[in-house]
């Protein structure tokens, strides 16, 4: 058993750098037992995770601004440990521009977009967000679930705004081949392997197809369990160097290229 696996099996901090690029705070329709930010930080401390970048569960709907306020409080409470994605509900172009500028000034590091609202990612009201994000080399985390329309919309955005770091949430939850092809075609696309299951061999497949340099790790905490999500990387059959790229280096680079 290698050293990393041994530490994980014993429940000790893993002793490697890690950034969780996909976290949430806030209540959801199904029961989440521990709805406080401290519980995320406790989980991070136990596992040895430096940073979790969070959006609010309200990213899915019209209460996005309330969600941003809550994320801001979390950032304030745990500076450097909790970072924020801006959630946007595209009421109007003006609203989107104001929201993005306001929260970037407050220190948020990216944007989270969710299509549970039934609106396309190419909705014209979102244009100011893409423009600003492109100017500042921001990461945008898109909720995806293998839908053809999602790929088409994100392809359009990726081609138009080439400075963006595009994170495809839940890559490989289905249609893993499509995700790999998409990432091969678009050099600013990163595959985020967050989702409830931990399919054996998925990370090995993505690494073989696109290389470990464009795979990032997110847990979806506290929608999902952070330790459980980390297990899929810790246990997979990749080198320590590849695991470090996925768990830390790639995310670090995405954050470092942001222009404030």
């Amino acid at each position: 058993m290698n050293a990393l696996l041994q530490k994980a099996r014993e429940g000790n901090p893993l002793g490697i750098d890690m950034i969780d690029i996909h976290g949430h705070i806030g209540r959801y329709a199904f029961a989440i037992p521990t709805l406080n930010v401290k519980s995320i930080v406790d989980s991070m401390n136990k596992l040895g995770i430096q940073k979790t970048i969070c959006s609010h569960m309200h990213c899915m709907g019209q209460n996005a601004e309330n969600g941003n306020e809550e994320v801001y409080k979390a950032i304030q409470a745990y500076p450097g440990r909790i970072e924020g994605y801006i959630s946007i509900y595209p009421f109007s172009r003006e609203h989107v521009e104001i929201v993005v500028k306001k929260w970037l000034k407050a220190g948020f590091v990216g944007i989270k977009l969710h299509n549970a609202n039934g609106l396309p990612y190419t909705h014209p009201h979102l244009e100011p967000a893409y423009k600003i994000a492109n100017q500042r080399y921001l990461p945008i985390l898109f909720h995806t679930w293998g839908d053809e329309k999602e790929f088409e919309e994100i392809e359009e955005i990726s081609s138009s705004y080439q400075n963006l770091s595009i994170l495809m949430a839940h890559s490989g939850a289905c249609k893993k081949e499509k995700y790999a092809e998409f990432a091969l075609k678009h050099q600013n696309v990163y595959l985020d392997v967050t989702f409830s299951s931990a399919p054996a061999g998925l990370l090995e497949y993505f690494t073989e197809r696109i290389g470990a340099q464009r795979i990032v790790w997110g847990s979806d905490v506290y929608f999902l369990n952070q330790a459980q999500q980390l297990g899929k990387v810790v246990g997979c059959n990749l080198s320590q160097q590849e695991k470090s790229l996925i768990l830390y280096n790639n995310a670090r680079q995405l954050l470092d290229r942001i222009q404030r």
Binding site: L5, A8, R9, E10, G11, D42, S43, K46, L47, S197, A198, P199, A200, N225, A227, Q228, Q229, L230, G231, K232, V234, G235, C236
Partner: peptide
């Protein structure tokens, strides 16, 4: 664990790191 379709360390880590 969910073997063989799942990576077993996921279920293991959820248990061993639980409070």
């Amino acid at each position: 664990s969910g073997l063989p379709s799942s990576e077993p360390m996921s279920a293991i880590m959820q248990l061993v790191y639980s409070e």
